[in-house]
Design a protein around this nucleic acid. Structure first.
Lengths: 113, 113
DNA sequence: CGAATATATTCGAATAATATAATATTCATC
DNA sequence: GATGAATATTATATTATTCGAATATATTCG
């Protein structure tokens, strides 16, 4: 059971472990948005956003409501937003190290393919 | 910058997205432990635990202190524990759905019970 | 020194996550 | 019922994570 809980947590964290999905949740934190609105605001491929939405749906982090032609998404439980906010606090607390971490992550962008 | 913050968050979540690493952080939440103690308590391969510790170190979620022969690990910032606790709250709030999610994840090794 | 203990690293194979492209579905309107 | 708009799904190539096995590095002790 202890173990199940950990697998569950790991699973949610996995769903959160992508910048695009975090962006989606943050965009939704102030209220619901249609898939199209999300695509616009993110400025990304329709299919890609839709796949990320599918991940969030699969882990039940968002709910969706179909209205005619469109699908409106919203954050299922505000606790998730709290988690994101805590992470922001964490980021600020460790700003210096965080920045060097980001430097390491962000490759010196190479010639695009 | 918005984007950097999201990449940072995603990166931390990625580090949290494994049951073993969650277990490690939870074991450390009440104080520091040596790598050996963690290996014992987890009952896992030495190399495997060490690799997970390396991930946690890389993302600076734990600090380590070498004392003679041993290396003692501790959680770097209690905010991380708060995040795990929030996740536990979330789990309880959505117990029913969570269980069915876990069912889907766990192999159908059902025979007994 | 050499052996023993504690921990870390490297390598390779298996598996999972991602982005893009192409296609499918669903609904509204004509 | 055909067309167009909004959204979802599938297929695939690429890349990243994971585990176990083997090996390496410290450190202590005799």
């Amino acid at each position: 059971m202890q173990d199940s809980l950990r697998r569950f947590k790991a699973d949610i964290f996995q769903a959160l472990a992508h910048p695009t999905r975090i962006a989606i949740l943050e965009l939704l934190s102030s209220g619901e948005l249609s898939a199209g609105a999300l695509i616009d605001k993110l400025g990304m491929e329709q299919a890609n956003v839709s796949q990320h939405l599918a991940v969030l749906r699969a882990k039940q982090l968002v709910s969706n409501r179909k209205a005619g032609n469109q699908v409106f998404y919203s954050v299922r439980d505000p606790i998730i937003i709290e988690v994101l906010n805590l992470m922001r606090t964490y980021f600020h607390a460790h700003l210096k190290e965080s920045l060097s971490m980001l430097d390491a992550i962000e490759k010196p962008l190479e010639t695009a393919r």
